[in-house]
Design a protein around this nucleic acid. Sequence first.
DNA 1: TTTAGCACTCAACGCCATCGAGTGCTAACA
DNA 2: TGTTAGCACTCGATGGCGTTGAGTGCTAAA
Lengths: 337, 337
Amino acid sequence: MLDDRKSQVLRAVIEDYIETAEPVGSRTIARKHRLGVSPATIRNEMADLEETGYLEQPHVSAGRIPSDKGYRFYVDTLMEPVQYTVEQYRQVYDEMIKHYREMERLIQEAGRLLASMTKSAAIVVAPPIEQLTFQHVQLLPVDERDVLVVLILSPNVVKNKIIRTERAFDSAELALLSAGLNQRLKGITYRDLGPTVLREIVADFGEIGQVMVELLVKGLAGDKNEQVYSSGMTHILNQPEFRDVEKAKALIEALEHKDLWLNLLCDDLHGVRVTIGKENIYSDIQDCSLVTATYHVGGHVVGSLGVIGPTRMEYARMLAMVELIASTLSELLTEMK
Amino acid sequence: MLDDRKSQVLRAVIEDYIETAEPVGSRTIARKHRLGVSPATIRNEMADLEETGYLEQPHVSAGRIPSDKGYRFYVDTLMEPVQYTVEQYRQVYDEMIKHYREMERLIQEAGRLLASMTKSAAIVVAPPIEQLTFQHVQLLPVDERDVLVVLILSPNVVKNKIIRTERAFDSAELALLSAGLNQRLKGITYRDLGPTVLREIVADFGEIGQVMVELLVKGLAGDKNEQVYSSGMTHILNQPEFRDVEKAKALIEALEHKDLWLNLLCDDLHGVRVTIGKENIYSDIQDCSLVTATYHVGGHVVGSLGVIGPTRMEYARMLAMVELIASTLSELLTEMK
DNA sequence: TTTAGCACTCAACGCCATCGAGTGCTAACA
DNA sequence: TGTTAGCACTCGATGGCGTTGAGTGCTAAA
């Protein structure tokens, strides 16, 4: 599509712009990247690249900046991929293994690490409860009619919720219920918990079974907002494109709007995905780029994570870091399963 | 200390400045607040107020702005107290009662409400575990050697932690341990869990008691950072004093530095407290004011909450809101106990 | 096809005059 | 003795204006 020299010029412009955040001129390119041609030639190439939509000009006497299309081409074909180093892997692994016992913490830590390593805002979407396998159910008395439902789910998730029951239950009765539920539920996922299983439970335990099922469903229906973690929001304020407080506020508010990310980051694709500027569906972030990946348990996609920053981001490094965190997280989650 | 007219002038300047965020001149005062004197007289008073340190002048041809000392005097003696309305109380109560079952959620909600009602950043410090009473301890098997410790503490707190044990325990054994622990611990606070009780447990259960105590102590030692919640940080970006991104960043970073607030908000005083500008110990927030209060369970201080904003804040309204949230939270926590 | 040369554009910068809000001081007044 | 009108003064903010310089597009020569 683009001949060799145009590609080289485009790459030079993009990499320079990523580094400096200033429009780049033909002179700069000729000086920094030894392409063996004069600024005038580069100027011609740049004019062509602008005409075909890869570059833009903020005003006539400034240099060029990459367009979304330019970044897209860069990410897809020009960019030199970066591989994370063994030390980086070790660092991430060591930090994450500390939180190995509890998945929620592990996932939060993954977000924090991603943010700190990329110096960007990071978002992590935890596995929806539907993806998890029942391991243990325990009902514990709290008060007269308050019961604590503790669910241990695989991999290493503990959920608890206090619910109010219709009538009083004593410890013995709750223990019995717990045992019955355990028998029915152990090893199945929430997804499998269809009407069939529910009916079986009701059949087994009669009216009490009914109550149990209600307990369980209530206990499970967690807040979706608690499934999305964001971190490193202050990094945004370091980027020159957010020196304007209004813009920064808009992005930070978007980040706090958790349910937006629930859908945005969640898709079933494996591998790392880049979404650039206007490619984003949500208009609030159309001057930003996202680098996202899914993470897995035993080859099964369970959640996703990513970074967000201005379109002018170090894509190669971001991709490497997202890849690193996602794969390490997958590795640890699969191990703990 | 200040004669009547000086007080009136000071109040007029402060209230105008709070409203407009612009230095206030003698003309404005004379026009807006009908003091029955000319700008010239007010000018004299203002010069006196500046000399005695209640007002400051950014530059000679601008109006006056209040100093920390000025705000302090305003808060202590000039300010017209605001009482929260019955509707506000109802709104807060209704919103909070939804999260009644679980204290942590309730407290987080209190923070969110405080932030949204004051349009400021809010911070809430949850009760340290030492303040809570054991109600139920349950050890549950997760894996071969992984045990889930569930602690139900009063008022309505559930803590859980998965810990790795030295040797394998089966369900029966864990049930036995749980029962033993419950017997020893029920009704006492972590504070009471001194060496005496620990020794008793070891005496009762021998080597297994030792393990249990270790489990418990490990399970209890939660992360102090998880005890501080902040919300409404984007409100900061609306204040004109934080139009400069660097300043905003500094404050937001300070807010994310959780352990700073642990000590700052926690003291045993009852009632609402105001800390203005340089009165703050931490230099990062010396151009901010804090309005904080403690909340109680049965008259016993267990935690604290507050708002932070520029020294130019609506103290009267802030005080009312902090008071409202703190007292409603105390009320609900006391009830649930 | 490349490149040197050149005219042109336009944001950024610094300079300067103007404007006006607000002051302090003085003198007159109640 | 306190209050106020009057007035000179200060100084940040605003806006016009010329200069600078980076960078361009075009043309013509190599």
